[in-house]
């Protein structure tokens, strides 16, 4: 009962508020066009009829929740996953470059962090560049990466993945610098009294101490990777992927398709973040973490 009261009720309440607000907003956004249509057709619908019409336009300015839900359901569960209209298919295309980019990004981030922690010169010289790299709008960089790589013959998955890498290495690098520096002075002194070598201190102290930081930053990085993969699909004229779906939707004013693709993207993002969280929990548990 407590669980229902403390968790389910607040969640449902917030969800209901969002849905109601969304409907109200949809009516408001779609009303001018509907009024226009009705005027031309010479119809004078009642208020209820009018509201019904605003929520069932084929190409609404703002699709209603049930339109998006229906589109999402049909394109996710009722189509063959190999079909070009299946959201599962598009999600998979985006997911594969997300995962590749995330793997690259995590590895690169860790590598940079190790360098920064161990080499004073890198600490001074690299960090400003890393921060600068993240202030550049990814939308501006993405086409250049694609074009440059295409010029040297690299096309397909890798360029898209590299844009994910570009976005995801940053949180990992920042988190891991903090993580590798997290052992307290007493632990470092302890290793010193054992006359431990730098690599022993690294593997036996710094690495295990950084694990919670790694997973926290990987959660951010995986979501950033997905954004990178979607953005990477926009300027490439990709025919598949959530980004391509968004682009096609905007060309043909298929607003419902666009919203459904957005929902698919957020579902994938949520699954990835949860997955990283679960792996993090398992690793922490196996490292003797106190069960929360």
């Amino acid at each position: 009962m407590d669980r229902v009261r403390d968790r389910v009720v607040p969640v449902i309440t917030i969800l209901a508020v969002i849905v109601v607000a969304w409907y109200a907003f949809a009516v408001f956004m779609n009303a001018p066009f509907q009024r226009d249509l009705d005027r031309r057709a010479g119809e004078t619908p009642t208020t209820m009829e009018f509201i019904g019409k605003t929520l069932s336009q084929p190409k609404p300015t703002m699709p209603a929740p049930h339109q998006v839900a229906q589109n999402f359901f049909e394109n996710t569960f009722l189509r063959k996953v190999t079909s070009a209209r299946s959201l599962v298919y598009h999600s998979w295309v985006t997911l594969s470059s997300t995962l590749l980019g995330f793997t690259f990004g995590t590895a690169l981030g860790i590598l940079i962090a190790v360098g920064i922690v161990h080499v004073i010169a890198l600490d001074r010289s690299l960090m400003p560049w890393i921060i600068a790299s993240q202030t550049i709008p990814i939308l501006a960089v993405a086409p250049m990466i694609i074009v440059v790589l295409a010029a040297i013959g690299i096309t397909g998955l890798i360029p898209k993945a590299l844009i994910s890498t570009y976005l995801s290495f940053f949180p990992v690098a920042v988190g891991m610098v903090k993580g590798l520096r997290s052992p307290d002075l007493m632990h470092l002194d302890l290793m010193h009294t054992y006359n431990a070598s730098a690599s022993q201190t690294f593997w036996k102290l710094r690495v295990p101490a950084s694990v919670p930081f790694l997973f926290a930053s990987m959660k951010v990085a995986v979501a950033a990777s997905l954004v990178g993969a979607i953005v990477g699909e926009l300027p490439t004229g990709a025919v598949a992927g959530i980004g391509a779906k968004l682009l096609a939707g905007s060309y043909y004013s298929q607003t419902i398709d666009m919203w459904a693709a957005l929902v698919a993207g957020s579902v994938v993002a949520a699954m990835l973040v949860v997955l990283v969280g679960i792996v993090g929990k398992i690793v922490e548990r196996s490292m003797g973490g106190r069960p929360a």
């Binding site: 307290d184 007493m186 632990h187 002194d189 302890l190 036996k204 003797g288 973490g289």
Partner: peptide, 11 residues
């Protein structure tokens, strides 16, 4: 050397 705190590695 024994420190003021136990300084055991939690993992």
């Amino acid at each position: 050397y024994v420190f003021q705190a136990a300084a055991l590695f939690p993992w």
